[in-house]
């Protein structure tokens, strides 16, 4: 059950012939119909509609728009705020996904060891997944509040900081960006760790045994045996995390809300600004289309990986 690509591989495609098979097919379609219809209505229609809106302009909150041709897309080219948001999105994905992969794998390797109290390690790994991203960001923002936050309070109690000149963590572009990276890595570690943990449990003990017999050190076993065997899991995790990171919104919105200035504004926040603050559904949709197009590359990669691991 830990195998990620398994569901795809185990679906047998047969061509129904007899009446029994036809009845089976009819039942399958009856069971699937509500789901397929719901996904078409709430999944596919909105995506197409967003595409249509990206060629519209004017109006307010989507009402009374007129055709814009390619005007919105041309506007993107000269929109500095868009480019800076795109830059932040890509950089954020690169840094946080790398961090999540490294920390998550390390956590999984640790939690895979046998020792008393291992369940505590696993519970600790699972915990960040369970708290709402937005609520968690509020807690972090509070912890790093310059006046009443835990971090500055700790620094003061330790005598490392002068209370008259507190560190304004979220007031500096560099510090705020750094903290967002830390927060994002902290929050999504658990997802990576869980997947890798499942992967580790799929490696039979004999493989390690054999490596040990051959005189491999622990370090060599990790790099030459464990990690290569985890490759398919790591690859799928990497792609899924990249997709999620590109779409980030809750985490940044509730932590810095793009500030200070626009230093931590990513594409998600910029879309939200356009649609909610300015009511410009046309331009907001255009940016959403760009974000979807970038994500689509990774979705295709993911599908190909799934299919490949499925046909081992």
């Amino acid at each position: 059950m830990a195998t990620i690509g398994a569901p795809l591989l185990q679906t047998k495609e047969g061509s129904p012939r007899g009446p029994l098979e036809r009845r089976e097919e009819r039942l399958a379609w009856l069971m699937l119909l509500p789901v397929v219809l719901a996904l078409l209505a709430l999944g596919v229609y909105p995506v197409l509609s967003t595409l249509w809106f990206s060629f519209q302009q004017g109006g307010s909150f989507g009402l009374g728009t007129t055709s814009a041709g390619l005007a919105n897309y041309l506007r993107l080219l000269h929109d500095d705020q868009f480019w800076s948001a795109l830059r932040f999105s890509l950089l954020y994905s690169l840094v946080t996904v790398c961090g999540q992969m490294i920390c998550g794998t390390a956590l999984a390797l640790f939690a895979n060891r046998r020792f008393r109290g291992r369940w505590l390690a696993r519970a600790a790994i699972l915990f960040p997944w369970a708290i709402p991203t937005a609520t968690n960001s509020v807690i972090w923002a509070y912890m790093f509040n310059d006046q009443y936050g835990l971090v500055n309070s700790l620094l003061e109690h330790l005598g490392l900081m002068n209370p008259a000149h507190p560190i304004v963590w979220l007031g500096s572009a560099q510090l705020a960006t750094l903290l967002i990276y830390v927060l994002a890595i902290w929050k999504a570690n658990s997802l990576v760790a869980l997947l890798v943990l499942a992967g580790l449990q799929g490696i039979p003990e004999e493989v390690y045994e054999a490596a040990r017999v051959d005189g491999a050190s622990r370090w060599q076993i990790l790099w030459r045996v464990t990690l290569p065997l985890l490759r398919p899991v790591l690859l799928v995790t990497l792609i899924l995390r990249t997709i999620e990171s590109l779409q980030a919104f809750d985490l940044i919105s509730a932590f810095t809300n793009g500030g200070p200035g626009n230093a931590t504004q990513n594409l998600g926040l910029y879309i939200y600004l356009q649609i909610q603050q300015f009511g410009d559904f046309g331009y907001g949709s255009t940016i959403a289309v760009v974000l979807t197009a970038i994500t689509l590359v990774f979705i295709v990669l993911y599908m190909r990986t799934l299919l490949r691991t499925g046909t081992r």
């Binding site: 795809l8 996904l39 995506v47 879309i271 599908m303």
Partner: peptide, 24 residues
């Protein structure tokens, strides 16, 4: 159950979950 286009429909379902919510 066995039915036609099973793999295709499953791919459709999975891929939809990966689209950015902003496009919806």
């Amino acid at each position: 159950l066995r039915f036609r286009w099973k793999r295709l429909i499953l791919l459709f379902v999975v891929s939809l979950s990966l689209f950015p919510p902003f496009s919806q």
